[in-house]
Simulated scan of single mutants.
Amino acid sequence: MAETGLEPSTNDMEQARVDQDTKQQVRTAEPDTGTWASIRETVKVGIQALLIALVVRTLLFQPFNIPSGSLVPTLLIGDYLFVSKYSYGYSKYSLPLSEYLPFQYHGRVWGAEPKRGDIAVFKLPKDNATDYIKRVIGLPGDKIQVIEGVLNINGKAVKRERIADYETTDAFGQATKVPQYNETLPGGVEHRTVERDGDHGFWDNTELYTVPAGHFFMMGDNRDNSTDSRDLSSVGYVPFENFVGRAEMIFFSIDEGTPAWQVWRWPADVRWNRIFTTIH
């Protein structure tokens, strides 16, 4: 039976092999469009996530951690908390790295003044850069004085009630107990305070302070271990525009001296009973 097809010549076979090799080289040289699309999508999602985080941090909530014991027993070293940025409105200090901003805007947008008893984060007036956290004690126009350990506001002693001593450690790391009180501020906010040095510490007898207009008087709950508005040279009166936000909730807490990144120590060192507790 006669063949109907034609036997390819040697030259045709060689040319086919060359064409196939050329196509393979082109495919190898060209980028995989699927891979590049995946990379672009990953970068896009990453940028979107960063922008969302920036907006949340700037306008809504900012995380802080507590590095000192000035607000013991309310806040402990190793507490991590969220601060609401919208509570007092927005100033230039609401923005990240505000100390490096080229413009000098003064004032607040949608401002709402802090209330007596709030625990608030603010920029230290001395350098307008360092974050401090204290309790709002004095409002504009108030007269503040501490007499024998008792807080006085506008000429009246603030009510305080002695409760069980607070267990802590002294300067040498030894376990000790110090006086603890329930204090009720004008307006009804109740909170605990401790007097490490009793009622005869360095700041337990002060001058009479008059809070200027547009400023606030801030104090720590650990009255003998807090650098605050009583020390005019270090903190003094805090301008309203220096407020960053109000402390709202503890979202994580770990024992003092334990880095949060050491996850293998979490089962024993995390203060589980403090997580997701509100601050007041």
Rank of each mutant, 00 (worst) to 15 (best):
W203F: 12
G201C: 11
N182P: 00
A260H: 08
E3Y: 14
Y93G: 01
A268P: 00
G236L: 06
D199H: 10
V136E: 03
D131P: 06
S226I: 11
E190V: 10
R116V: 03
I119F: 12
Y88M: 04
G89K: 09
D131M: 06
T74V: 07
P239H: 10
G173H: 04
A260E: 06
D221Q: 08
N273E: 12
L75N: 02
Q15F: 08
F252H: 03
V136L: 09
V244N: 00
W36R: 08
S98E: 08
V178R: 08
L95R: 08
D19M: 06
T28N: 15
G34D: 13
K159Q: 12
K123C: 10
S70G: 07
D165P: 03
V45T: 13
G117K: 11
L76D: 06
K143E: 13
V189H: 08
P8Q: 12
K134E: 04
Q174K: 13
H106S: 12
N11E: 14
G155S: 10
V194L: 07
Y100P: 00
A213M: 07
G46V: 11
P140T: 05
D21T: 11
W203A: 11
G173C: 05
L60K: 01
P8I: 10
M249S: 04
Y105H: 07
V158D: 01
R230V: 06
Y86A: 13
N182Y: 02
D199F: 07
H280M: 06
Q20G: 00
N11C: 06
D197Q: 14
A268L: 01
A37K: 15
G245H: 03
K92N: 06
Y132E: 08
G245T: 04
L54R: 05
V55S: 13
R57M: 07
L185S: 06
A268M: 01
F103W: 15
D131G: 04
W272E: 01
G149N: 05
Y86F: 15
R196G: 10
V189A: 12
G188E: 12
Q25M: 12
T28W: 13
Q180F: 09
Q20R: 11
P267V: 02
N205H: 13
M1I: 10
E167T: 12
D197K: 11
N152M: 14
T4V: 13
A268Y: 00
Y93C: 02
P114G: 07
V211M: 12
G220D: 07
A213C: 08
V146L: 10
R246Q: 10
A247T: 03
G111I: 01
F103C: 05
I254C: 00
E99L: 05
K159I: 04
L75E: 00
R27T: 12
M249L: 14
F103N: 04
G236Y: 09
L95K: 05
T169V: 14
K23I: 13
P96H: 09
G117T: 09
R223I: 14
G214R: 10
L60D: 03
G107D: 04
V72W: 03
Q48A: 15
T22G: 02
T168N: 07
G187P: 12
I250F: 02
